[in-house]
């Protein structure tokens, strides 16, 4: 029996999965921090979208192959401020845990202010290692490609661009009101929202995966539980 045979009995046939893609370009906000106090001040004032961007923008930009730290704030605390305690605390912040970006901002501010209280001197970065607050310009477009059935997902995901992976898997939970990524939401429409594929997708920790790793993991999960790539 095919893993998705049961889905055929779901009432009505869900809409095909519309594969979207996006192109991202970085915009400098003009704000930059040379020390931790300046970082705090800019965190309090910068556009919340800039804060959010620093959790995923580096996935789509040149960066080290090892994803040691999960966001740009943590990486800067480690690499420029040489404050490993702060880097570790910042690394554990996951934007998916927050209902809105202001809560995310407040959590970061709490961590930074606590660290400022703990330190006798304000940690500072050498010239050339300042933190630049960036933002993203995102252009979203429909690729025109469709996935008709769940068993086609694995093959489709393997050809997803970095922009498609970002849009459907990383960005979607913040964009959607149900907090799901687009793939899980589509599986739910097929009556597979509580199935093993959806559960494993929900457990994926994208913050520590490169785009290539994310693509491979998602395709493997889909292939294992939804089929479609059997010889």
């Amino acid at each position: 029996m095919h893993p998705t045979d049961g889905a055929v009995q779901a009432p009505g046939t869900p809409e095909p999965f519309h594969i979207k893609d996006c192109s991202v370009v970085t915009i400098a906000t003009g704000r930059h921090a040379q020390n931790l106090r300046e970082l705090r001040d800019h965190l309090a004032a910068v556009d919340a979208m800039s804060i959010y961007s620093h959790f995923w923008l580096s996935r789509l930009q040149p960066r080290k192959a090892d994803l040691e730290f999960s966001n740009d704030f943590a990486a800067w605390a480690n690499g420029a401020l040489h404050d490993d305690v702060l880097a570790e605390r910042l690394s554990m912040v996951n934007p998916s845990d927050f209902a809105d970006l202001e809560e995310l901002r407040q959590t970061l501010l709490d961590i930074v202010e606590q660290r400022l209280d703990e330190k006798e001197m304000v940690p500072w970065a050498r010239p050339g290692q300042r933190f630049d607050f960036l933002q993203a310009q995102v252009i979203v477009f429909d690729t025109g490609e469709r996935v008709e059935r769940p068993e086609q997902l694995a093959g489709a995901v393997r050809s997803f661009s970095a922009g498609s992976l970002f849009y459907h898997l990383i960005d979607a939970p913040r964009r959607r009101t149900d907090g799901l990524d687009d793939v899980r939401a589509w599986l739910a429409a097929w009556g597979l929202g509580d199935g093993p594929a959806a559960r494993e997708l929900a457990a994926l920790d994208w913050q520590f995966l490169s785009i290539a790793q994310l693509r491979e993991r998602v395709a493997a999960i889909c292939a294992a539980h939804l089929g479609g790539e059997r010889a």
């Binding site: 370009v25 933002q135 310009q137 252009i139 979203v140």
Partner: peptide, 29 residues
């Protein structure tokens, strides 16, 4: 991954589209 001509051209077009559509952070074509 990062420094070939195709990426460069894509980002130029993205920047121009962003300005053309009023500098909104997200534009859906």
């Amino acid at each position: 991954e990062n420094f070939l001509l195709t990426r460069h051209l894509r980002e130029y077009m993205t920047a121009f589209l962003g300005v053309h559509y009023g500098n909104r952070p997200r534009v859906e074509l």
